[in-house]
Structures are given as structure tokens and as C-alpha cells.
């Protein structure tokens, strides 16, 4: 029952996007040069958001000036200077940490509007993002349910203080857990690496497992994304530990595939629609130039994924193919 609702919502959403495109048929970026800065193109999420933004800009008749940070936040920040020097008409900036803030400010001061993706900023016109509040609370509930409302949980949480979206997701996850006094978050929290996240998380999980023998740890949660979860699951398999559950956020095809496996320890996720997010941000740029007043945040729907069956369904609905 639930599944069919999920499916129909997604179909509806897709239909909504299509109609809004048609309804906004007057929107155009013709003659505009739009800088698209992405922090990296190695990960599915980043790449999809980037592809969504660039293809929509082109569809609307604009010219794309793309820059790629190679998964290095400083290079990503520097790339905004290049866009500034290039005198683009607007900038879509995907992800990035605090290093980009001064760059946004410089762009704003030069009269170039900045549209952010997953990075709320006082210097941006609009931030297009998933409903991070919903993501944070939902994954908190799912995880608490999965471990029966009690136990020890380790969390990979490197970015809570550095990225606002992560602050929301991890903060609300903790907020939900406040109502579960028998759930304890293992201290210190783990810090994953930004680049090579799966391999780094694999090593750190193996270290963690040697500290917490069988039966002393119940779940490992990745606070803001799910690339590290790939390494976490690998480590659990290597160590032959079936007593620990894994939860994470983002729901890209790679992690949905892992969730869909029989007996997967990866039990809950919240899937985003990165391509749609990028695309929506590009639409917002066009709306801005068309004189529309934009709200500071545009939320794009997310899809909670609880367990194997829902993972398979979401995989199909999000257009990643079929899993059997």
C-alpha cells in the first residue's frame, strides 16, 4: 500500500515539474551566461545536481560556464573568482563549505546574483535544497525504530559544524533521539573525509569495530550523506558483524542497490532528487531574471526509504532502473 503511494507521489511530482515547465514557458535564459560551480563530479549526487543545472540552463537557451572543484573545497571556492572574472550573468553554486562565503559576497557586490544548491548563504538569492528538516527527523525515527528504541549508536558527523545543511540533518536526528533516553550516541563522534569517503569510512569502521566487540554497538549512522555508508557496510561484511545496522541520507543509486540486497545491514535512508534540485535551481535563475520574487529557500521533495522493498521501489521510481 505504502509503496504504491510512494510511486504515485513520485509520478505526480514528475508530472508537476513537467507542467510547471510548460506553465513557465515564458521562462528563458537566452543570451545569458550562467556560471555553474560544483564542488566535485566524482560522486553521484554532485554530478547529478550539476547535470540537472547545466542541462536546464542550456534548455532555457543560456550558455553554461562550468567549473569543477575536484572534490576540493578550496579549489571550489577559488572557482567562483574565475566566474567573477568572467563576468557571468549569474552563478549556480552547488555545495561547498565556509570557504565560499567571501566569494559569494564578492559576486553579490559585483552585481552577480548567486543561486546556491544545498548551501544556505546570506549572500545568495535563493537556496534550492531538499527538505533537510524532514530528512533529519525521518531518519532519526527510522533508525530508532530499527534498533528497537534502545542501544548504542556511532555517527559519522564531520560536517555538522561546517555545512548548514548538515547542521540541520544531524541536529534534527539528535533532536529526535532526545525522546529515546535509552539510545546513547558513542563519543567521540567519527569524522569522515570529504574525498575518498567510502575507503576512509571503511578503515575508520574497522577501527571502531575492534573497540566495540559483538553485541556492544547497535547502529552506525552517517549524519549528512551516504557515500561513507558504502565503506561502513563493506567493513561490517569484512568483520563478519551482523549485529549492527546502518542508516544514512541521500539515497543515490549505489546505496539503494546495497539496501536492496538480501539481509543488508543498510536499513534506512532518505532519497533525494539531485537532478531535479539542480534543474530547479536553474529554473529559479530564469524566474529571477523574469522579475519574479523568489523565496530564500526552495524545497524539493525527498523520499523516505525504509527497508529492502522500499529501496527496490524507490530505485525504479527515481529512474535508476530495476533491481531484482
Amino acid at each position: 500500500m505504502r509503496l504504491s503511494i510512494l510511486t504515485s507521489t513520485i509520478t505526480l511530482a514528475a508530472a508537476f515539474v513537467a507542467t510547471s515547465l510548460m506553465a513557465d514557458g515564458h521562462l528563458s535564459l537566452a543570451g545569458k551566461r550562467i556560471g555553474v560551480a560544483v564542488v566535485g563530479t566524482q560522486h553521484f549526487w554532485d554530478r547529478e545536481a550539476f547535470n540537472g543545472a547545466t542541462s536546464t540552463v542550456e534548455k532555457l537557451g543560456g550558455e553554461v560556464v562550468p567549473v569543477d572543484g575536484g572534490r576540493d573545497n578550496q579549489v571550489h571556492a577559488d572557482n567562483h573568482d574565475v566566474l567573477l572574472a568572467n563576468k557571468v550573468d549569474a552563478v549556480i553554486s552547488i555545495l561547498g563549505d565556509g570557504a565560499v562565503e567571501p566569494k559569494f559576497e564578492a559576486l553579490k557586490n559585483a552585481g552577480i546574483p548567486v543561486f546556491t544548491v544545498d548551501h544556505p548563504s546570506p549572500h545568495g538569492v535563493n537556496n534550492t535544497t531538499s527538505d533537510n528538516y524532514y530528512m533529519g527527523t525521518t531518519i532519526g525515527r527510522y533508525m530508532a525504530d530499527a534498533i528497537g528504541g534502545e542501544g548504542k549508536v556511532a555517527v559519522f558527523n564531520a560536517f555538522e559544524g561546517a555545512l548548514r545543511i548538515c547542521g540541520i540533518r544531524a541536529g534534527l536526528w539528535k533532536y529526535v533521539l532526545q525522546d529515546y533516553p535509552n539510545i546513547e550516541i558513542v563519543q567521540p563522534e567519527l569524522a569522515e573525509e570529504f574525498a575518498n569517503a567510502p575507503e576512509d569510512a571503511r578503515k575508520k569502521t574497522l577501527d571502531l569495530l575492534s573497540q566495540y566487540p559483538e553485541g556492544t554497538l547497535d547502529a552506525i549512522h552517517v549524519g549528512c550523506w551516504d557515500q561513507p555508508a558504502i565503506g561502513v557496510v563493506q567493513a561490517l561484511e569484512e568483520a563478519g558483524r551482523s549485529d549492527i545496522l546502518v542508516t544514512a541520507l541521500d539515497g543515490g543509486p549505489d546505496t539503494l542497490e546495497i539496501m536492496a540486497e538480501d539481509g543488508s545491514p543498510f536499513v534506512a535512508n532518505v532519497a533525494q532528487q539531485p537532478n531535479l534540485i539542480g534543474s530547479t535551481s536553474a529554473m529559479n535563475v530564469a524566474r529571477h531574471f523574469a522579475g519574479e520574487k523568489l523565496l530564500p529557500q526552495t524545497y524539493v521533495d525527498v523520499y523516505p526509504v525504509n527497508g529492502q522493498a522500499e529501496a527496490k521501489a524507490a530505485y525504479k521510481s527515481l529512474g535508476y532502473g530495476t533491481l531484482d
Binding site: 575536484g70 578550496q74 579549489v75 565556509g98 562565503e101 573525509e193 570529504f194 574525498a195
Partner: peptide, 13 residues
């Protein structure tokens, strides 16, 4: 100065 702070992973590039 460049990164307005210290970010991990800067050494590789």
C-alpha cells in the same frame, strides 16, 4: 586566507 579557514584534504592539490 585562501580558504577562509582550514579545510581537510587541501594538501593533495
Amino acid at each position: 586566507a585562501r580558504g577562509s579557514g582550514s579545510s581537510p584534504g587541501t594538501e593533495e592539490n
